Amino acid sequence: MSPEEISQRLELLRLEHRDLDAAIIALGEAGIPDQLQLARMKKRKLRLRDEIAWCEDQIVPDIIA
């Protein structure tokens, strides 16, 4: 993947992560939240965070001084 493609993917992942965060909050505030759905959404959010970290590492690699 080129740096431009990684940057575009990173922006999409961040957007999905924010949307999922808002959905988790809304579901949690429901009268009786669906615990299974909530757990799945939280797992998805964690996977997104890992993929975001990977993309960020590809754009700005670690340089050991």
Rank of each mutant, 00 (worst) to 15 (best):
Q35P: 00
G31D: 04
E5G: 00
I64P: 02
L12S: 10
R47K: 10
P33G: 01
I59D: 05
A53Y: 07
I64Q: 09
I25M: 07
E29R: 14
R18K: 15
L27A: 05
L46W: 08
E29M: 11
L36F: 07
Q37V: 02
S2L: 01
G28N: 13
A22H: 14
A26K: 12
I24L: 08
L20N: 13
M41F: 10
R49V: 03
I24W: 07
M41I: 08
D21L: 09
D34H: 01
E29Q: 12
R44E: 13
R18P: 06
S2R: 00
P3A: 04
R49C: 03
L12K: 12
P33Y: 05
L27D: 02
M41T: 07
L13R: 06
M1K: 02
P61M: 10
W54Q: 08
A53K: 08
A30R: 14
R49W: 06
I32C: 00
C55K: 05
R14M: 12
S2A: 00
R40Y: 07
E4W: 06
D21V: 04
Q37Y: 02
I64T: 11
W54F: 08
L46N: 13
L13M: 10
V60Y: 15
R14K: 15
I52P: 04
K45L: 14
W54M: 08
C55A: 13
P3N: 08
Q35L: 10
A23T: 08
K45G: 09
C55E: 05
R44C: 04
K43A: 15
A23N: 13
M41L: 13
A39Y: 08
G28C: 05
E16A: 14
R9C: 01
P61R: 09
L48V: 12
I6C: 02
Q8N: 10
I32E: 02
D21E: 14
K45Y: 13
L46H: 13
Q37C: 03
E4F: 09
C55G: 00
K43T: 13
E56Q: 11
I63W: 13
L12R: 15
P3Y: 07
R14D: 03
A30G: 00
R9N: 06
A39H: 09
D50Y: 07
L12M: 09
Q8A: 12
L10G: 05
D62I: 15
G31W: 00
R18H: 15
P61G: 06
Q58M: 12
C55L: 14
G28K: 10
R49P: 01
I59K: 05
R47E: 13
A65T: 09
P3C: 01
P61Y: 10
S7Y: 05
I59V: 05
I25V: 14
L38P: 07
L20F: 09
L46F: 11
E51P: 06
D19M: 14
K42V: 10
A65I: 13
K43V: 09
V60P: 00
L46D: 13
D50C: 02
A23S: 12
I59S: 04
L13W: 07
L36R: 09
R49S: 11
E11I: 09
I52Y: 03
L46T: 11
P33N: 01
D21A: 12
S2Q: 01
W54A: 11
R9L: 04
M1I: 00
R47T: 10
A23W: 12
D57P: 00
E4T: 04
M41H: 06
